Simulated scan of single mutants.
Amino acid sequence: MTEFDTGLPSIRMIQNLIKEEKDVEIKLLSEDLIVGRVLWQDQHCLCLVDHYDQSTLVWRQCIAYLKPKA
């Protein structure tokens, strides 16, 4: 099992987005775009909560990009 490296800039960026409760856009490799707030992350997945309080589990390997919503 791969360890979760909290020293990586990408992990720290997502942790800051979680702490600040900022909305993000996640573009998936399938071309889907999902918007919400990252609730938690681990080495394999992110949990995104949308404006309807519905949770979506997103596998990191499926993400094309993630960016804070302006």
Rank of each mutant, 00 (worst) to 15 (best):
E21P: 00
F4M: 10
M1V: 13
V58K: 09
D42F: 14
I11Q: 00
R60K: 12
I63V: 11
C47Y: 08
Q61W: 05
H51C: 07
D32K: 10
K22F: 04
Q43W: 07
R37M: 10
L17M: 05
C47N: 13
I34K: 01
T2P: 07
W40H: 10
D23L: 03
L8Q: 06
W40N: 11
E20D: 10
D53S: 14
H51L: 14
D50G: 11
S30R: 02
I34P: 00
S55M: 12
S10M: 06
M1G: 11
Y52Q: 06
P68V: 15
G7Y: 03
C47L: 13
K19N: 10
D50Y: 12
L39M: 11
C47F: 11
I34W: 00
L33N: 09
W40S: 11
E20Q: 06
W59Q: 09
V35M: 09
I34F: 01
D50F: 10
I14F: 00
D5W: 03
L39F: 11
F4P: 04
R60W: 09
D53M: 14
K22V: 05
V49W: 03
A70N: 13
L33Y: 05
Q61K: 12
K22C: 05
D23M: 03
L57I: 15
C45N: 15
V24P: 01
M1C: 07
D50L: 08
Q41L: 12
L66M: 09
I11N: 02
Q41I: 14
A64H: 13
T6N: 05
Q61L: 08
Q41Y: 09
L57D: 09
L33V: 11
E31Q: 12
D5E: 10
G36W: 04
